[in-house]
Design a protein around this nucleic acid. Structure first.
Lengths: 306, 306
DNA sequence: TTTCTTGATAAAGAATATCTTTAGTAAATG
DNA sequence: CATTTACTAAAGATATTCTTTATCAAGAAA
């Protein structure tokens, strides 16, 4: 019983004939043209026969190969059905627990792009999503802090406000511009030194001397930002969480971005050891890191340019 | 267009189902059971689904795999037809030019074993064989001498004779036992100092003082050995060329093998650069070297043990 | 039961196969 | 002609794939 060898070579040959050129085959297979050529030549060497006529602009099977082409096509079309069948069934869910503000304001707007590419992957994020919460440790955690876990990115904290409020600043004291302005805070900003807020910002950059901790406190950044959009007041907030608002113009940064505080800690990613083996989780993690890198870049350039 | 990945894993899965066990699949594929398990698990990990139920004494496809099995079988049966078609066409001939005595007496008796394993490889050895001689340099050369080429083995030269002649020795002069005995020679032994014969042997070990170069001269060792078998006389000959005769008892070595001459040169193998790329030639060369090594071993142990 | 055998699995390192890179060639195109 | 395009060659880097070795579990035999 002759067992089949040179599977990848056969695949390359089939693809080369199907697409009509090594380059096109290479693209289809996600490798370089040189690699396709090598695969094919390996088989040709093994057989001691040429298989492809590399004619001018276009490939042709030699008579030897021609006799096998029908079965070859059939084989790979069957294999494609196999992978399609298997892939289709490969539903997978990922349980995510993350810092609530980050999940709502950074992850949520980015996730649809990932889900479009991976419709088989279902999510449960902080208990809500496609699938119900499961007991036990989540597959993926993203926490703000100095614990373990791979850093994703470190945020930049800046004052933000609604469109109308910027004008109000201009009308007031040119030095202590924020004096008397309505301040908004997050609960964590008074509860934890890891979350700098107005108090720290005024200390660093001035603009106000009295009652830096006065004003409304919100539990969730999303709610606070909603208030900001409605010109309720001024909030110190992670720049990464309002990038789309800034682009849309629904929120503005009233001060130069050079006047910012660095978040004391990064957001950190941890995978449950068990889950880290699943390719779906690996892909999600890789995507998270890539997106986080993009955000890092964006934060950098924003701070530098304005 | 989803291109097919994990080809080898799919092959392993198909074979495992077909044969009913990882071990059997491993044998069929010519690898170890552990490797089969790894291939399969790689795919299972990738998909995030189990594919095989490793039940007690027998494998079963999971429902997920079951849905793909039909196409999977079809794919690999088509691939087997492909390789059969291609393999069938893969006739290949190897042109060999070699020392005639070596070719007739060493290569010829060993070659059938190789040809059994490689029925697609046809030979033309010194102009004769499956296929006619072709013009130009041969694919493989085996020469005796000090030229270029990889040494195969160095021969050991000893006196040989037919069964009946051994008794005659015992009847004669206990010191100069060979005095008066009929000597056989090869043409090359008088024409070339690279081929020691009786003259050199007597000089080294005694047993005769007069007319060491007297007697019949043969062109081919094969003919000379035929005469030896018929008790025509005594011949100094490469031990490697008479191993099967010694085993069969049709020829004997009348003196202790310790009384031997070393051939001044080894047999040497050279491949035409062009031909060396062909896998068939590579396999033949590898086989030659392996057989030569065996012969080396055999010569060693014979000389030492008796 | 205990012991032996067989088949499957895990981990680690070795051996290959495979890919990318870089450079170079020949045909097609402007 | 000069340029582009597709393919090829060689070398080194990277990954996969395999073997080895040891262990485990289950069934067969003592």
């Amino acid at each position: 019983m002759p067992h089949v060898s040179h599977l990848k070579s056969l695949q390359a040959v089939e693809m080369a004939i199907r697409t009509g050129s090594l380059k096109a085959a290479a693209d289809a297979l996600g490798i370089t043209p040189a690699a396709v050529g090598q695969r094919i030549r390996a088989l040709e060497d093994y057989l001691g026969t040429d298989l492809l006529l590399r004619g001018r602009s276009g490939l042709q099977p030699t008579p030897e190969l021609e006799r096998a082409m029908s079965d070859l096509r059939q084989a790979f079309s069957a294999l494609e059905r196999v992978t399609e069948t298997l892939d289709f069934q490969r539903i997978s869910e990922i349980q995510v627990v993350a810092d609530p503000d980050w999940a709502e304001l950074w992850l949520a707007p980015r996730l649809p792009a990932f889900r479009e590419e991976h419709p088989n992957i279902l999510f449960c994020i902080n208990g809500a999503g496609d699938v119900p919460l499961r007991l036990g440790a989540p597959d993926v955690r993203v926490d703000y802090g100095d614990g373990r876990g791979e850093p994703l990115f470190s945020d930049i904290l800046v004052p933000v406000t609604g469109l109308d409020n910027t004008r109000r600043i201009a009308d007031w004291d040119p030095v202590l511009q924020m004096e008397g302005m309505p301040l908004l805070h997050l609960d964590v900003q008074r509860e934890s030194p890891d979350h700098p807020g107005w108090v720290e910002w005024f200390k660093a950059f001035g603009h106000r001397e009295s009652g830096p901790d006065r004003g409304v406190h919100y539990k969730h950044a999303r709610i606070a930002l909603e208030a900001v959009r409605q010109n309720v007041g001024f909030l110190v907030c992670g720049l990464s969480l309002v990038l789309s608002d800034l682009d849309a113009g629904s929120i503005v940064t009233p001060f130069p971005l050079a006047q910012h505080l660095r978040a004391p800690h990064p957001y950190r990613l941890t995978l449950r050891a068990d889950a880290a083996r699943r390719p779906q989780v690996q892909r999600f993690a890789a995507w998270l890191k890539a997106e986080a890198d993009k955000t890092s870049q964006t934060l950098q350039s924003r701070v530098l340019s304005g």
